[in-house]
Amino acid sequence: MNIFRLCGDMSHLAAIIILLLKMWKTRSVAGISGKSQILFATVFTARYLDLFTSFISIYNTCMKVFFIGTVYFTIYLIYMKFKATYDSNHDSFRVEFLIVPVGGLAFLVNHEFAPLEIIWTFSIYLESVAILPQLFMISKTGEAETITSHYLFALGSYRALYLCNWIYRYYAEGFFDLIAVVAGVVQTILYCDFFYLYITKVMKGKKISLPA
């Protein structure tokens, strides 16, 4: 564990808590993409299959349980509890255009052609594009609530911090995972224009409103 990865995990944790607070306080899921949350649930389920078979640390297990638990709770809030406030018309990204290519790529490009490794690789590739339905929804509605912007900033920062973690681990431990790094770079790049909007607008108290 290093400071970059710890900050990354805390940023990820913060993002999930911000999202849950937004939903619970406003009792609304307006502006939130249910499809992205379904993709995140797929990512965590595929990645944490070893939750019961390999024990790394208390921290690792607790975080995995928390991430899996909260993402399914979020889906419950979107599609059941606060279903009336879910904006399905604007949440129209075709996720099959993500899942099929990512699934195929995981089969072709992986570290080892073994079921658990391919599923892990699938979760890494899927995570890098899982935010697209959410960004697409914001571009369609033309704006994002400030709290949703904070959620996205924390979520985007988490993988950017992981990139720093991988640089540190390369020099400190000789650890290097090309698949995770490349997917992490793609994932972070997808947030760049949002980061720009966040820093130029939200930090000045304005609201994010894309030219619709």
């Binding site: 990865r5 070893d50 390999s54 690792n60 975080m63 892990w120 000789g174 650890f175 290097f176 995972d177």
Partner: peptide, 10 residues
């Protein structure tokens, strides 16, 4: 320098 340990990251 491939990955040495198992999957120890989240």
């Amino acid at each position: 320098k491939k990955k040495k340990k198992g999957k120890d990251e989240l």
